[in-house]
Amino acid sequence: MATHGTTPPPGRRQGGCLPTLVILAVILGLAYGASKVFDDSGSTSSSSSSSSSSSGGSGGDKASSWNVGDCGGPDPEDAPDGYRALDCDDSGATFKALAVMEASILPDAIQCPAGTDLIIQVKISFGSGGDKGGGIPSKTVCGRNLSGDHPGDAGAGGGQLVKGDCVTDTAQEVACASAAGSGFKVLDLVKDAKQCPSGTTEPMRLTLAIGRPYDVICAARA
């Protein structure tokens, strides 16, 4: 954006080398200032990635380039909800990325694949301060636990709702092991009840949620 202002009147030309020295001093001053702004890599600002299920934890440079198969774990500097990227053989690694998706400010707009145990929102903050609770959402990491505990598996009762899960009559997810006779099995998740597969006995229309990829749970008695 251009800055408008008044143009100063031309100064009176003086003889001698003083103007040359002044110009040289200005150039040296600008060069010194530039050395403070630009680091060795040419970056004008430092950036740190933060990743957590709700706010953010420092993840370093690796966290800003998450890929499927990368691992991570809790960030002790951003407890209790912060996570950071780690090597998969690191003793602190607790999950592996099943999928890496675009970020969204809408909580229901991201649908991770089946088997996702936790959903981590990666945020990027600029500057050396690194506000743990702030930043710009950049990616969503769908993580699966490295341990044998997988609440995101179909029917296990945790994670996002997927085909094969079970719900109550109020559409609350529960473990299928405890839903027999009183709960419903999820046959599909669709936008309109007309899209439900055969065998659906209880199409549950949900309240409107902007960004959610489905509006109806196609269910049958468990």
Rank of each mutant, 00 (worst) to 15 (best):
M1P: 09
T3P: 05
G5A: 12
G5K: 07
G5P: 03
T6R: 12
T6K: 10
T7W: 08
T7I: 14
P9M: 11
R13D: 04
G16L: 11
C17T: 14
C17P: 15
P19V: 01
I23S: 08
I27K: 11
G29A: 09
G33K: 00
S35H: 00
V37N: 01
V37R: 03
D39S: 05
S41D: 03
S43L: 02
S43C: 05
T44H: 08
S48N: 15
S49A: 14
S51M: 13
S51P: 00
S52E: 07
S53R: 12
S53G: 15
S55M: 07
G56M: 05
G57W: 12
G69A: 06
D70G: 02
C71V: 11
P74Q: 00
P74Y: 09
D75G: 08
P76L: 05
E77S: 15
A79E: 08
G82H: 05
L86M: 10
D87A: 15
C88K: 03
C88L: 08
C88G: 09
D89L: 09
D90S: 14
S91V: 12
A93V: 03
T94N: 06
T94F: 05
K96H: 08
L98M: 06
A99E: 15
A99L: 07
V100E: 04
V100L: 12
A103Y: 12
A103D: 02
A103V: 05
P107A: 13
D108P: 01
D108F: 15
A109F: 07
P113L: 12
G115Y: 03
T116P: 03
Q121Y: 14
K123A: 04
I124A: 06
I124E: 15
F126R: 13
S128W: 07
D131M: 05
D131G: 14
G133V: 10
G135K: 13
I136A: 10
S138P: 00
V141R: 10
V141C: 00
N145P: 03
S147N: 02
D149G: 09
D149A: 14
H150W: 01
H150K: 09
G157S: 01
V167S: 07
T168Q: 03
V174D: 02
V174E: 02
C176I: 01
C176D: 04
A177D: 15
A179Y: 09
A179T: 00
V186M: 04
L187M: 09
L189R: 01
V190D: 11
D192S: 13
K194V: 13
K194N: 15
P197W: 04
T201W: 02
E202A: 14
P203C: 02
L206E: 04
L208P: 03
L208T: 13
A209L: 11
I210C: 01
D215I: 07
V216L: 08
V216R: 10
I217T: 06
I217R: 10
I217M: 03
C218T: 04
C218Q: 08
A219S: 07
